[in-house]
């Protein structure tokens, strides 16, 4: 991932889209499967497509289908969507320093297109030099994800059963290795290692919690472990410094 400053909005936009390509590949089977499953679970053709267009939240969309099939009420589905998407609150708060200088007409579309994938891509640029083109980089990533999601939903809706079990092609591994490629180089000290290990272990441990709350709780635990380790190491250093005097 390039970290130098961008010369133009166009260059930033293209770099954002390019760095998202592996995640787009990883999202393809999910988009197609969502399209095929919508009508099977009682959504109309139009509503399946509209959900991808106006909600644009992969895991919440899948969970809503499961709940629809189980005969859940629309209220419960909206409430579940809220809980499943709580992790986006964490993403948005993390991005506050980057959007603070932007006008609201930028912030609203950026928020609408905020996903796990785009957060992962732009998080690689957090903490570095803040270029003036951050929003264009973000938009390049977000729009390419959005366009791909719509096309895949439509493909799944129209091809239906024609796509031979694409969920078994293993394209989902693209997402995992891309996220590893983003995270691993950032683990340069012990607090960060603590954050990563705690979040990973807890997310596996708590995977059966409903509505992905386990993921949210594991991320929070990781954050607290990182911060705790940072403070503990600092205290030890200052104690050593005092002892040396």
């Amino acid at each position: 991932m390039t970290t130098h400053a961008f010369e133009s909005p166009g260059q930033a936009f293209r770099a954002g889209a390019q760095n998202t390509i592996p995640l787009i590949v990883g999202a393809i089977p999910f988009g197609i499967v969502f399209g095929t499953l919508g009508p099977v679970n009682g959504l109309s053709f139009e509503a399946t497509l509209a959900m991808s267009l106006i909600v644009f939240a992969g895991s919440a969309q899948f969970i809503s289908l499961g709940l629809l099939a189980a005969g859940a009420s629309p209220w419960l589905i909206v409430l579940t969507t809220f809980v499943v998407n709580l992790r986006h609150l964490l993403y948005a708060v993390t991005l506050i320093p980057m959007v603070r200088t932007l006008p609201q007409r930028w912030r609203a579309p950026m928020a609408f297109w905020l996903t796990d994938e785009t957060f992962a891509v732009v998080a690689g640029r957090l903490g570095g030099e803040h270029t003036g083109q951050f929003h264009w980089y973000y938009l390049g990533s977000a729009l390419s994800m959005y366009l791909n999601w719509q096309l895949c939903t439509l493909l799944g809706l129209t091809l239906g059963e024609w796509v031979p079990d694409i969920e078994n092609w293993g394209l989902d591994v693209a997402m995992a290795v891309t996220f590893i490629g983003i995270v691993a180089p950032q683990v340069v000290n012990r607090p960060r290692l603590a954050a990563v290990l705690a979040a990973g272990v807890c997310s596996v441990w708590w995977r059966d919690w409903p509505h992905q709350l386990g993921l949210f709780a594991a991320a929070l635990t990781g954050i607290l472990c990182g911060l705790g380790a940072e403070v503990a190491l600092q205290d030890r250093k200052s104690e050593l410094a005092e002892g040396g005097c």
């Binding site: 957060f119 998080a123 983003i182 990182g226």
Partner: peptide, 16 residues
């Protein structure tokens, strides 16, 4: 604390 958020969330997605 939030400086740990990206790596913590991504790890929580990767591990499972």
């Amino acid at each position: 604390a939030l400086s740990y958020a990206p790596m913590a969330v991504l790890s929580a997605i990767i591990a499972p």
